[in-house]
Simulated scan of single mutants.
Amino acid sequence: MDAYLEEELYDLITYCIQNSSASDYSIKEDRIKEIGRELFADGGVDALENMYFSIEHRVREEISEDAKPYRFLWNDISNEWNH
Rank of each mutant, 00 (worst) to 15 (best):
G43Q: 03
E62C: 03
Y4S: 14
I63Q: 05
I63R: 03
E38S: 05
S64W: 04
Y4L: 13
W74L: 08
Y25S: 10
I77D: 08
Y10W: 12
A67P: 00
I55N: 03
H83W: 15
E56N: 11
I77W: 09
Q18T: 14
D46C: 05
R58Q: 01
E34N: 11
G43S: 10
S21W: 12
S78E: 12
D42P: 00
G44V: 02
G36N: 06
L73T: 05
S54Y: 11
S21P: 09
F72K: 14
I77K: 10
Y70Q: 03
Y25W: 11
S78R: 01
H83T: 06
R60E: 14
E56H: 09
F40C: 02
V59S: 01
G43P: 00
F40L: 00
I13P: 04
I35Y: 01
I63V: 09
S21N: 13
D42N: 11
A67T: 02
E49W: 11
E65D: 06
I32T: 10
L5H: 00
S78L: 06
A22D: 14
R31S: 02
E56S: 12
Y10K: 04
S54F: 06
T14V: 11
A3S: 14
A47M: 06
N75M: 08
P69K: 06
E80K: 07
K28H: 15
E34D: 15
T14G: 08
Y10R: 08
E65F: 01
R71Q: 11
D24E: 07
L73W: 06
A41I: 09
N50I: 01
D66S: 09
C16P: 04
R31F: 05
D2Y: 05
K68W: 12
R60W: 05
S78Y: 02
Y52F: 15
L39F: 05
Y10L: 12
R60L: 13
L12T: 08
W74R: 08
F53E: 15
K33P: 01
F53Y: 09
E8L: 04
L9T: 04
R58F: 03
P69M: 05
I55Y: 00
S26P: 04
H57P: 06
